[in-house]
Design a protein around this nucleic acid. Structure first.
Ligand SMILES: [Mn+2]
Ligand SMILES: [Mn+2]
Ligand SMILES: [Zn+2]
Ligand SMILES: [Zn+2]
Lengths: 131, 131
DNA sequence: GTGATACTGAGAGTCGTTCTCAACCAGCGG
DNA sequence: CCGCTGGTTGAGAACGACTCTCAGTATCAC
């Protein structure tokens, strides 16, 4: 299960993880996948990502803190490594009175592929519009 | 409906909007609330917020671009007005190859109330843990 | 009034996720 | 070996947040 996640370069949803794990262990049930993903997340071996569209959570074996750019065309999410400066966090904390422990940041736009393929391509082509 | 949203200083979910609208128009159905919220969002008169927990979408009559700090204790979301510098956006665009059109940013932490009330207070006290 | 048109609320359906529970499996003492 | 016990599992039910469908109703044009 962790292997599947580590082998994934995309950011699979639970359903996609299920599908992939099933290739190795066809008898597994989705409840187990959800349970195991929750365990991996709670023990810090994976991240659960909510990419701000209302869509299903994604899972990420890359537990370094990092952000994502999400394609509005095809749903692809790529890693962005560019931390917000600490000074900004401190400033926010000061102005809001919150004790800030972290942040979630995702950029939206079109990935190179979707820029190339005109207006609404990947969402209508191929699959579900989410990868 | 827009009035209800404009009067709200919190960031209500569709269910909360429904509940409030119902006080003035008890015969309204939730389908109409969802339909109307979608209309307000698509015509730019309200924002739909996905605050990165897996929870229900929030709605916001404040359509200026702004971010939020979300309390891990009680779920409260307060406005943060502190734009990410354009230079950073450009840098991300350059490095990722994405055509970046915007971003979603939310800070997480504890609001002043929840800091005051010890460890796990507001989530167990009072209501549902979401406001 | 009468008919076309748009809007509404109730309820069914969908999707992602969690819960429940009986079957199963490991380890362990006998 | 063998029955017991406690943890895991998978199937399916349940759940929450939406979205869809459809018949009923309000609105307007004549
Ligand atoms: Mn990632
Ligand atoms: Mn706001
Ligand atoms: Zn794309
Ligand atoms: Zn709080």
């Amino acid at each position: 299960m962790l292997e599947v996640l580590r082998a994934a370069d995309d950011h699979p949803t639970a359903a996609e993880v299920y599908e992939r794990v099933r290739r190795a262990s066809p008898r597994i049930g989705s409840a187990t996948v959800y349970r195991t993903l929750a365990l991996l997340v709670s023990t810090g071996r994976a991240l659960e990502l909510n990419l701000g569209d209302g869509a299903a959570a994604r899972y990420d074996a890359n537990t370094r803190r990092h952000d994502h750019a999400v394609c509005d065309g095809c749903g692809r999410a790529v890693d962005i490594d560019h931390p917000v400066p600490d000074g900004m966090m401190a400033e926010i904390a000061r102005r809001s009175g919150f004790a800030i422990t972290g942040y979630d940041l995702q950029f939206r736009g079109l990935c190179p592929d979707c820029q190339a393929n005109g207006s609404d391509p990947a969402r209508t082509a191929g699959g579900t519009g989410q990868q």
